[in-house]
Design a protein around this nucleic acid. Structure first.
Lengths: 233, 233
DNA sequence: CCATTTCCTTGACTTATATCAAGAGCCGGT
DNA sequence: ACCGGCTCTTGATATAAGTCAAGGAAATGG
């Protein structure tokens, strides 16, 4: 097994833990390699442990009967996913699939729960992980229910801008099709709205690079939830 | 302070705890009474503790700038809410308001975190609470993104049917306006869709009582996400 | 480099549901 | 019982965004 010590000791779930705890965590971790597009688990599958992506990218999503996809989360290196059945119920509530070739660490439920009872720090870190996830869901529900697609896009670009520490330009790390699924729309609409925002001078689009032309305008759009008619030419 | 011992020892967060733990929990709890329609906290307010409703009903919701409401959750007696800032970030991510006159118990953040570090059972129970909340959010996002309003209604009635242990009839415990906000629509649409489902022989509506006429049809509708054209007269 | 596949964009058209308005019905207080 | 205020229903209309189709652009593999 590759040495995942550094990754785990820096991860949100296990950071700042003493060495003997990291050792205990490593001893229960099971490595799984997955190629791109590989299904990790399905909605309704029994869940007897959770995962951390060590490398790569994983999407967790729901599918409608006619094939429409809603991506709930995208998880990169160091981020845990699939924890819900460890603590509540028996089954995974959604599907998980690799977006890129990935190395995964699997933590069996019982072994992990044992670790939690011995280490309040791990418990508190896991509580932080789940609480942060709840925050993200709150934003997602607000987007889907109360905001139009351009406002969702604006909010996403502002979030990317903060993560990438750049108020001039952001780069999409996922495809536009996946971004559409994440924001609750379809690629056609995404394309049209990007063009509309571009025509209104808010952004410039060059492939996966988005130049944030009118930063304040994007803040207004994200807050108000809809494109301002005043912005039309 | 009223004796909340029984309520707490039966709550999902504190059930099956030894007596001395319940005593410790009671010692940090602060009672707050709230009349109907009273704001408990606002989106963005600093959160330095969480609540449990001892009696009454509380809605947690987001508001759009033009006043549209999306209810995220409804919390009744024994259910915790407002925990997110205890574990992640500083501010509440949504608003909370009483729907009925309510008695609330407030648990200060620091005191509660101290309790958690001493009692793995409380930590695990809180993890179960948050994990269950994540399940509910997954359903909500799926509803908003992938299902039409009648399918959301069908899913809601089936859930109520299970809670109320009655496959013949369910009774709404919230107003139709609030149900609309919870399902991500407006009262006009809710009214129209109830009528449509009624015309198709799926349900019969009498005020807040909904007779589930075609239970299997409701299951199909909830699963498929849309009203079947075959159901039309 | 080239052929193939996949992704993205654009056009035409449809649809679920929101907006605005007003009347009917329900509920609680006096 | 009556009345006022609030909720719900219904009608007319508009709108954001989805469906279907096809071509252009980009990515991938040999």
């Amino acid at each position: 097994m590759k040495d995942y010590r550094k990754l785990l000791s820096e991860s949100i779930l296990f950071n700042e833990l003493p060495e003997e705890h990291i050792n205990a965590i490593l001893s229960i971790a099971v490595e799984k390699k997955a190629s791109s597009g590989e299904l990790i688990f399905s909605d309704g599958d029994p869940g007897n442990g959770f995962y951390i992506a060590a490398d790569g990218l994983v999407k967790v999503y729901k599918l409608s009967p006619d094939g429409k996809e809603q991506i709930l989360h995208m998880f990169g290196p160091g981020e845990p996913f699939g924890e819900v059945p460890v603590f509540s119920g028996k089954a995974f509530p959604a599907n998980a699939e690799t977006v890129k070739k990935s190395d995964l660490l699997f933590f069996p439920k019982q072994a992990f729960v044992n670790l939690i009872t011995e280490s309040p720090s791990i418990a508190l870190n896991m509580l932080a992980v789940l609480a942060k996830r709840l925050r993200q869901f709150t934003v997602q529900v607000e987007n889907l229910s109360l905001k139009e697609v351009p406002a969702r896009l604006a909010g996403y670009f502002l979030l990317l801008s903060e993560e990438q520490g750049n108020t001039e330009m952001v780069e999409l790390k996922i495809s536009k099709g996946q971004l559409a699924s994440f924001l609750g729309t379809i690629p056609e609409t995404l394309s049209r709205m990007l063009k509309k925002m571009s025509d209104q001078g808010l952004i410039e689009v060059d492939g996966r690079k988005i130049r944030l032309v009118d930063f304040d305008g994007l803040i207004d759009l994200a807050d108000s939830g809809k494109l301002d008619a005043n912005g039309a030419f």
